[in-house]
Structures are given as C-alpha cells and as structure tokens.
Simulated assay, not measured.
Amino acid sequence: MSKNEVNIKNKRARFEYQLDEVFTAGMVLSGTEIKSIRNGKASILEAYCIVESGQVFIRNMHVSPYENGSFYNHMARSDRKLLLNKKEIKKLEKWLKTKGNTIVPLKLFLSEKGWLKLEMATGVGKKLHDKRHDLKAKDDRREMDRAMKK
C-alpha cells in the first residue's frame, strides 16, 4: 500500500445489514487523526452514523493515537462530523425515524484531491435466517466455480 492510499473497509457490513442507498461524505478531522488514518491505523467495524441537530456524525470509529503526536494528540473514539449537503441530511434523518433502520459506514478512502471520504449506506439489520441464506448462496457459487474449472 502506498503512502497516499487509504482503504479501510467494514467487511461485516454487507453480511450483517441489508443495504439500500449509498452516500459519500467528507469528514472533519484534526491533524493527528488524518496522519494516523493515512498510516492505516483506523477501524470502522463497530462504527455507526447518527443525525444530531441537523448534522451527521460517525460514532464509535476508532482512530489510534498518532505515534509522533505530542499532547495535541486526538481521542481514539470521539464523534467525528461528516460533511453532507442539507438534502442528504434530511433524507438520512427521515430514514432513521423508522425503528430498526441504521446508517452503516462501508469504507474510508482518499479522493483524487487527497481528501478523506467515508462511504456509508442506509440499511436494516438482517435476521439469522437471511445470513444463513447468504452463506448458502456463497457456498453454492464456490461449488459451481470449482465444477466449471474441472
């Protein structure tokens, strides 16, 4: 992985949630946070997004403290503001009003201009039988691929 490449994914998101609409948002970060994320020291596995007073935040995202940071270093698990336009925020706020709906972070990446972006999706948690169905379909595809190669 090169110095300017960030690719932090939430691999469990598609397995745990039935995803609907995908959004891309910028993120407000401090200097030590972006340096730590560029080093790949972040996790969005347990993170989720909330809408609070007309603003969207990502909660429970872990960004390890920067090794060379002094007392200016950031908190590892603080709420970080996401940058979306008002229309998208209203849409997300409306989505969250229904019980069981959530906003799941999918991946962190750098844009062409070098800005850190978060890809997130609206989703509903899957039931156990849905997860089993997905696993069975995955196994069936694997078996078919093996049969085709022989």
Rank of each mutant, 00 (worst) to 15 (best):
M1L: 13
N7E: 07
K11S: 12
R12H: 07
E16A: 11
L19Y: 00
L19M: 06
D20W: 04
D20R: 06
E21N: 05
V22C: 07
V22S: 12
A25D: 06
A25Q: 05
M27G: 10
M27N: 09
L29A: 02
S30Y: 09
K35L: 05
S36G: 10
R38H: 07
N39Q: 15
N39V: 01
G40Q: 00
K41H: 08
A42Y: 03
A42F: 04
S43V: 00
E46P: 01
A47C: 11
A47H: 09
Y48V: 10
C49H: 04
C49F: 07
I50E: 10
V51N: 04
V51P: 02
Q55M: 08
Q55V: 05
F57H: 05
I58K: 14
I58G: 13
N60R: 15
E67I: 02
N68L: 13
G69Q: 09
F71R: 15
Y72W: 07
N73M: 09
N73L: 10
H74T: 05
K81I: 01
L83N: 07
L83W: 01
L84Q: 10
L84W: 03
N85Y: 11
K86W: 00
I89G: 01
E93N: 15
W95K: 10
W95P: 06
L96M: 06
L96A: 01
K97A: 05
K97T: 08
K97L: 08
T98W: 02
T102E: 14
V104P: 06
V104W: 11
L106W: 01
K107H: 08
L110T: 06
S111T: 08
K113I: 00
L116Q: 03
L118Y: 00
E119A: 15
M120N: 01
A121T: 04
A121H: 01
T122P: 02
G125M: 15
G125W: 02
L128Y: 12
K131L: 14
K131V: 10
R132S: 02
H133D: 09
L135F: 13
K138H: 05
K138D: 03
D139A: 13
D139V: 13
D139F: 11
D140Q: 14
R142N: 08
D145W: 08
R146N: 06
A147H: 04
M148R: 09
K149Q: 11
